[in-house]
């Protein structure tokens, strides 16, 4: 565990010493702050606009950071040959993968936390003067989704180039967001065979829509009704499966 923690902290250090991350974060905060202007334009439902767009930006920029850092996570170590000095130490390759993944998740956690704090602060100072902690719950689910996206990016990063990994990850992200619609389409229109294929894919591909509770949170649906233990369990199991697959691929690789 100590070794995994060391790898994770090193990954976190690499991310926070990268200027590009700051650029994305500053831009994200500026966009979230910009929702105040949007709210002024939309008479009557001002705070809803701030919440809606704010959570949207957290999700978009979180995904950007997850994909941007995730696709290079393992590939960069092989490309720069820093992996040589790691694999030659008494550490299992799977520990390395888990450490890298957790380091990136911690980076995302800090970023999502900063963006969420900005949004909650804006609501307090420019809105009702209340601390809206329901937004934290929505952000927590966004973070859960980002954990799955990161897992996908890391999986591709273990055997593919960053450019291809980015394409694969973003494609899966888009499919994952629309998976429920695909399922509905499959049930309604597709024939028996196509319906089965769509049904199979539904269970295989990541159902990212499950993590999206922003609309419900913005419209005041009680948290107990929108956050389910099954969704969290689903996310965690999906991540564990992705990491196991990554470790399996990584274990068999020759580094040269």
């Amino acid at each position: 565990m100590f070794k995994i923690q060391a790898i994770a902290m090193n990954t976190f250090k690499e991310a926070v010493r990268d200027r590009i991350l700051y650029a994305i974060l500053v831009f994200a905060i500026a966009m979230i702050a910009g929702t105040v202007i949007l709210a002024r334009l939309g008479a009557g439902s001002g705070e809803k606009v701030i919440r809606d767009f704010g959570l949207g930006f957290i999700s978009i920029f979180g995904t950007l950071i997850a994909v941007f850092l995730g696709i290079g996570l393992v590939h960069k170590e092989i490309d720069r040959r820093t992996i040589y000095t790691i694999v030659s130490k008494p550490i299992h390759r799977s520990q390395f993968i888990v450490g890298k993944y957790l380091g990136l998740c911690f980076t995302l956690f800090v970023n999502v936390a900063i963006m969420t704090a900005t949004l909650v602060g804006i609501i307090y100072f420019f809105g009702e003067g209340l601390w809206d902690f329901r937004l934290v719950a929505a952000s927590a689910m966004i973070f859960m989704e980002l954990m799955v996206i990161t897992g996908i990016a890391v999986l591709f990063s273990a055997f593919s180039t960053p450019a291809l990994s980015a394409i694969f990850t973003l494609s899966l992200f888009a499919i994952g967001r629309l998976l429920n619609d695909f399922m509905m389409f499959g049930e309604k229109y597709a024939g028996a065979t196509a319906g089965k294929v769509i049904g199979g894919l539904y269970y295989l591909l990541p159902n990212l829509a499950r993590f999206n509770i922003s609309t419900e949170v913005v419209h005041g649906v009680p948290l107990g009704e929108v956050i389910s233990g099954m969704t969290i369990l689903y996310g965690l199991l999906y991540v564990v499966t992705l990491l196991a697959l990554t470790a399996l691929i990584f274990q068999r690789r020759d580094f040269r």
């Binding site: 070794k3 250090k13 690499e14």
Partner: peptide, 21 residues
């Protein structure tokens, strides 16, 4: 060898020391 250029010399050795526990 290519190393983690964002680390200081001290941090770098500390990291590998941690990998050995």
């Amino acid at each position: 060898p290519y190393f983690y250029t964002y680390l200081t010399g001290w941090e770098f050795l500390n990291f590998y020391g941690q990998l050995f526990g």
